[in-house]
């Protein structure tokens, strides 16, 4: 195959320069997705009437719409909403400089938040209930029992699942290239605009994604092993 290897080498640092943007997008989205999932999860676990049913319904809606479609919806709908909010509480809408990055974060946070809600709920339920009784029996308050005994274990139980979602999210951020966010994929495409070495550009992007994913996967495995040290009932690979 006749690839322009020289260009590929040259292109690596160019594409790599977009790595911080991809990671920023990933971590911002992850943060807000977790916040969403925890809030949704609390409402579902606390069995708050109406709100619980509403959130369960909303989750099926979010999961039933492709992420790409949600990104486009946010891309077009959020500026519209912001314009409507102009003047509200002193907010000034600036149509010249929309933050496509933030719009993408909203879409990813909603989408992944819906999936992670299930992780939050199931991890919490997986903690053996008797331990909360035991916490009460030694005189702990409900708050102490929750934060010292139940939640730390629920967090550990959720790590493998959350790691998976993190890896998917990291790669899914490439979809944001379609909605004007200059992350790795968009940068790779743009870097080939002058010499038409399009395939080379995509290969560079693919290699960078792969390398980053391998590093994170290793790190998350280590974290999981370290955190679930106390559970010898499960096999950590």
């Amino acid at each position: 195959m006749n690839l322009n290897y020289a260009f590929m080498l040259e292109d690596i640092p160019v594409v790599l320069s977009a790595l911080p943007r991809t990671l920023g997008l990933t971590f911002c989205s992850l943060f807000f997705a977790i916040v969403t999932a925890v809030l949704f999860g609390i409402c579902i676990l606390k069995n708050i009437p109406v709100l619980k049913q509403f959130l369960i319904g909303l989750n099926t809606v979010i999961k039933g719409i492709p992420l790409m479609v949600q990104l486009l919806l946010c891309y077009y709908a959020i500026p519209y909403l912001l314009r409507a909010a102009d003047g509200f509480l002193g907010y000034v809408y600036n149509p010249k400089n929309p933050s496509y990055f933030a719009f993408a974060v909203v879409a990813f946070a909603i989408n992944y938040g819906a999936y992670m809600t299930d992780v939050v709920v199931s991890s919490y339920r997986a903690v053996e209930r008797g331990q909360l009784d035991a916490a009460y029996s030694v005189g702990m308050t409900a708050f102490q029992g929750m934060f010292r005994i139940v939640i730390p274990q629920a967090v550990v139980i959720s790590i493998p699942n959350l790691s998976n979602y993190f890896m998917w999210l990291l790669k899914a951020t490439s979809l944001a290239s379609v909605v004007n966010v200059f992350e790795i994929l968009a940068t790779a495409r743009m870097s080939t605009a002058n010499n038409y070495a399009i395939l080379e550009g995509y290969i560079v992007a693919a290699l960078i994604y792969w390398a980053v994913c391998v590093i994170f996967e290793k790190g998350l495995n280590c974290l999981n092993k370290k955190m679930s040290r106390y559970r010898n009932d499960i096999v950590v690979s």
Partner: peptide
Amino acid sequence: RKTGMVFQNYGLFKN
């Protein structure tokens, strides 16, 4: 705080 309890399934804090 005046009582202690021992459980059928031990109820030890696993973490």
